[in-house]
Simulated assay, not measured.
Amino acid sequence: MSWKVYLSGEIHTDWREQIIKAAGAAGLPIEFSSAVTDHGASDAAGDVLGEEQNGFWRDHKSAKVNAIRTKTQLEQCDLAVVRFGDKYKQWNAAFDAGFCAALGKPYITLHSEDIIHPLKEVDGAAMAWAQTPEQVVQVLKYICREK
């Protein structure tokens, strides 16, 4: 079986690359997808629809354009990994986790121990909580086992 795994959340570290590289080295049958991880490009996604003077409307249009990609990829994935970093609050990641829960899509949360409390509901609906990309890869190895 080939798996489609969506990588959601924090964009300021290389956690995605670590997972993709390790999964590739292990020969796992996984196709990865992700949101746009270029912060500037994501913020400007709606600019093609016309310039906005008000930041709210610029963000609103860009969020909707970004949601086309995110919604489609979450609907098509078999599993999502949702990363919450330490530097910024990732409200979009929490939204993605809730969307997965509503769709009945399994997801793994990836975050440090110090934010367990604020993520208790998000973690409560997750199939696993990992603290490192290596732990995520170990879960992926297990679920991809042939026997």
Rank of each mutant, 00 (worst) to 15 (best):
D123R: 13
I108Q: 00
K105N: 07
M1Q: 08
I11M: 06
L110I: 08
H117T: 12
A22G: 05
K4Y: 15
A97E: 13
T13R: 09
G104W: 12
M1H: 12
I143Q: 06
Q131D: 02
V48Q: 14
T132I: 01
V48R: 14
Q135E: 13
I108F: 11
A45I: 07
W3Y: 15
I68M: 10
K61W: 15
R16L: 00
D86S: 13
L119D: 00
Y142P: 00
H60P: 00
A26S: 12
K71R: 15
W91T: 15
T109N: 08
E31C: 01
W3N: 00
C144D: 11
K87E: 12
G9D: 05
G27V: 01
V139T: 00
D59V: 01
I11Q: 03
A63W: 14
E75S: 10
K141Q: 14
E52Y: 06
I108T: 03
F99L: 12
V65E: 04
T132R: 15
F56P: 01
Y6T: 00
A35I: 05
H60E: 12
T13L: 08
V81T: 01
T37I: 15
L28G: 04
A97I: 11
E52T: 02
F84D: 02
F99Q: 05
W15T: 04
C100F: 06
P133V: 01
M1P: 05
E75H: 14
A25W: 07
A45C: 08
D38T: 10
N66D: 09
C100D: 06
W129A: 08
A26C: 05
K87Q: 09
A80G: 02
A67N: 08
Y142T: 13
Q53W: 05
A80R: 00
I68E: 00
D123P: 03
I116N: 12
A94M: 13
E52S: 13
Y107C: 02
P29A: 03
S33R: 08
I116V: 11
E10C: 04
S42P: 04
A93K: 14
T37G: 03
D114A: 07
F95Q: 03
E113I: 04
L49K: 10
D96T: 04
L110R: 13
A130D: 02
K105T: 05
L140Y: 11
Y142G: 06
K147A: 05
A102H: 07
A126W: 09
Q131S: 12
Q73D: 06
A45W: 10
W3I: 00
R145A: 08
S34H: 06
E121M: 02
I11G: 00
K105F: 12
P106S: 09
K21W: 02
A125S: 13
H60Q: 03
A25M: 06
L79G: 01
A26I: 02
A93M: 12
I30W: 07
V137A: 06
M127V: 15
I115P: 00
Y88T: 11
E51R: 12
Q90F: 03
V81S: 03
N92V: 15
T132P: 02
K87C: 07
F56M: 11
Y6N: 03
Q18D: 00
D14E: 08
F32V: 01
W129R: 13
D43N: 14
K147L: 15
Q53H: 07
H39Q: 13
T13A: 13
V81K: 07
L74K: 01
A128R: 08
I143A: 02
K87L: 13
